[in-house]
Computed example of a mutant assay.
Amino acid sequence: MFTMKLRKATLTIATGLTLSLALTACGGGSDSGDGDGKITIGIKFDQPGVGLKTPDGEYTGFDVDVATYIAKELGYDAKDIEWKQAPSAERENLIRNGDVEFVVASYTINDERKAKVDFAGPYFLAHQDLLVRTDETKITKAEDLNSKKLCSVTGSTSAQNVKKELAPDADLQEFGGYSECLNGLQSGAVDALTTDDAILAGFAAQKEHQGKFKLTGLKLSNEPYGIGLKKGDKELQGKINKALEKMQKDGSWDKFVKDNFGSANYKNEPAPEITETS
């Protein structure tokens, strides 16, 4: 009798365990995950309006909204995202080393980078511009930078563009983050900060900076932002492109632009056509 009861109890436990495992497999997690239901995405941590980690540990900005939308289309909830800082000079390494699934970090598509990584998109078209102090009157065109101290970020296309094409005699100072350039601009240590207009608009729109800085409105280059991913991963590229197309069609793209750049009166370009498909 005791043996029969033990067998029944064992069978009940085994059945319950099997059912529990089946329910776990069917519910809640991602259906396209990496095994632990998490996805790691590279973003900028120091670009207000684009990609910013706030003092209380929140992540905000246009790139964050775009990345969250893509992750959802791939099967991940916002809580499943692990954000990793992706400085300009480290983006390719993070992708190639597999430290991130993809990078959404004001990442301009160009041939030099496409030799190392693949892109999906583009999902946004920015232009290189200059941020100056509101009382600045002598910088009205790119050539004016030749006699000025200019700040940019190490590894950015903006810094390279200035030295090669726009103002080769500018006193270019490169730092690891935009916040250092902004501090230099505010203190008078540098005369201008150059990067993409979307990033500059984000800085200018910050409450503590309002009224201190202005954009010159110079469209010095075209900067198509793409989603960086491991070279040869055509399956992921296709899935992300599909998510970007849906994001444009359902109105989410316009909402993200308004939410993040609206207060800066930033005149953005329309959503660009997706061209990175192979």
Rank of each mutant, 00 (worst) to 15 (best):
Asp197Cys: 01
Asn93Thr: 11
Gly42Leu: 06
Gln206Cys: 00
Cys181Thr: 07
Gly61Cys: 08
Gly49Asp: 11
Gly238Gln: 11
Phe45Glu: 09
Asn241Ile: 06
Arg133Trp: 00
Phe2Tyr: 04
Phe203Ser: 08
Gly57Pro: 08
Ala25Cys: 11
Gln128His: 12
Gly184Phe: 14
Lys38Tyr: 06
Asn146Ala: 06
Ala14Tyr: 07
Ala271Ser: 09
Val153Ile: 14
Ala205Gln: 03
Lys164Thr: 11
Asn93Ser: 13
Gly57Leu: 06
Glu235Lys: 10
Glu101Leu: 02
Asp144Pro: 03
Lys239Trp: 08
Leu185Asp: 01
Asp254Arg: 05
Glu208Gly: 03
Lys53Pro: 04
Pro55Asp: 15
Phe45Ile: 03
Ser152Asp: 01
Thr275Glu: 09
Gln186Tyr: 10
Leu185Thr: 00
Glu235Ser: 15
Glu269Pro: 03
Val132Leu: 13
Gly75His: 03
Tyr69Arg: 03
Asn265Val: 01
Ile43Leu: 13
Glu208Tyr: 01
Glu58Pro: 00
Gly42Lys: 04
Ala201Gly: 15
Pro272Arg: 02
Glu245Cys: 03
Gly61Asn: 04
Asp31His: 12
Glu174Ala: 14
His127Lys: 09
Ala170Gln: 04
Gly262Asn: 12
Ala198Met: 12
Phe102Ser: 09
Pro224Glu: 04
Glu143Gln: 14
Lys239Thr: 08
Ala198Gly: 15
Gly188Thr: 07
Asp46Gly: 02
Ala142Ser: 14
Ser252Phe: 13
Gly37Gln: 12
Gly188Ser: 07
Gly16Asp: 07
Ser106Lys: 06
Asp34His: 11
Asp233Arg: 08
Phe175Tyr: 14
Asp144Cys: 05
Gly51Phe: 05
Gly238Asn: 11
Lys267Asp: 05
Gln237Ala: 09
Ala126Phe: 02
Lys116Leu: 12
Asn183Ile: 04
Glu82Cys: 01
Ala120Thr: 03
Ser158Trp: 02
Asp196Leu: 03
Val100His: 03
Gln237Asp: 10
Gly177Arg: 05
Asp99Arg: 03
Leu19His: 01
Lys72Thr: 09
Leu193Ile: 14
Leu21Met: 12
Gly37Asn: 14
Ile43Phe: 08
Pro48Ile: 00
Glu143Pro: 00
Ser252Gly: 01
Phe175Asn: 11
Ala120Ser: 13
Ile81Asn: 08
Leu150Lys: 02
Val103Lys: 06
Gly57Asp: 01
Val190Lys: 13
Tyr69Asn: 05
Gly16Ala: 13
Glu58Gln: 10
Ile39Gln: 07
